[in-house]
Design a protein around this nucleic acid. Structure first.
Length: 275
DNA sequence: CATTACCTGCAA
DNA sequence: TTGCAGGTAATG
């Protein structure tokens, strides 16, 4: 899914629409396997009557703070969306969870591929979620030096390393390919061979591609929708992602598609030399 | 480190 | 019909 800019956009959209609202209960739940942290009955009972006190993001999780010390974590994985609709909207077969709000509107979780998850958490589970994720790449703590420390002495190829949520939280396949192109680093480079200059470029490129996408409301490659059900606008800015065969916008060389760590990967062989 | 599994839809 | 899709966890 949705990587950091998309999840952040959804969280902001939900905050704008549902902050202070109370959940009246579960209106539809037809795929109980997506619920974690409680069984179906427990989940239904737990959310009813809870007020939405905050909506934020950690890594690729939307984190909804409920009254009474309970949190809902929503992971959209590949195809999920989390949207507020009016009461008269009719959920389709892919909408697996609908929760009522006390103003009559409804919060839908839709997920064609059913990989997404809704996790009911207490304070301890929330802490565990936080602990298993690495530095937020748009936070003050993410400095070029911090990135250098993550890359240092590692023989792992740079792309799978950047996708490791335990090290840096929120990057996915799109923004890793885009950031590596922008910093002119080949995805197969062993992380430890990336120079200080390149690390500085990569740090700036990661923040640039994420911030650009945030400004445009995220990238709708396929299923992504924001918290209003609308498409994002950042997909038109892709330099390499899903552009295999097209000329590199910097040098004209055809963009190559390869597979790295089982993921489709897009690279300009001229701008991002391997050897 | 690589492979498999989880699911469905869509384009080639 | 086959392969591919933005993610992650579990398993050799």
């Amino acid at each position: 899914m949705p990587e950091l800019p998309e999840v952040e956009t959804v969280a902001r959209d939900l905050a704008a629409q549902a902050l202070g609202r109370t959940l009246t209960g579960v209106i539809k739940l037809d795929w109980p396997r997506m619920i974690e942290g409680a069984d179906e009955a427990g989940f239904r009972a737990a959310i009813e009557g809870r007020r939405i006190e905050a909506v934020g993001r950690r890594a690729k999780w939307v984190v909804i703070t409920l009254s009474g010390g309970l949190w809902l974590g929503v992971h959209l994985r590949m195809s999920g969306s989390l949207v507020v609709y009016d009461a008269d909207a009719v959920p389709d077969v892919h909408t697996h969870l609908v929760m009522g709000l006390d103003d009559g509107r409804r919060l839908w979780f839709r997920d064609v591929r059913k990989f997404g998850r809704v996790r009911l958490m207490d304070a301890k589970a929330l802490q565990a979620l936080d602990d298993k994720h690495g530095v937020e790449p748009l936070s003050e703590g993410f400095t070029p030096e911090r990135l250098g420390g993550i890359l240092k002495d590692r023989s792992t190829r740079i792309k799978p390393l950047l996708l490791d949520q335990a090290l840096i939280a929120g990057l996915g396949n799109i923004y890793v390919d885009e950031a590596l192109w922008l910093s002119r680093i080949h995805p197969l480079r062993p992380a430890g061979t990336v120079s200080v200059d390149e690390t500085t470029r990569l740090h700036g490129a990661i923040q640039e591609v994420l911030n650009r996408s945030l400004t445009l409301g995220g990238s709708s490659f396929r299923d992504y929708r924001n918290g209003y059900g609308q498409l994002g606008g950042n997909q038109v800015t892709f330099a390499v992602y899903q552009r295999g065969g097209e000329p590199c916008q910097a040098c004209g060389t055809p963009i190559q598609r390869l597979v790295v760590g089982q993921r489709g990967t897009h690279v300009c062989p001229t701008c991002q030399p391997l050897g």
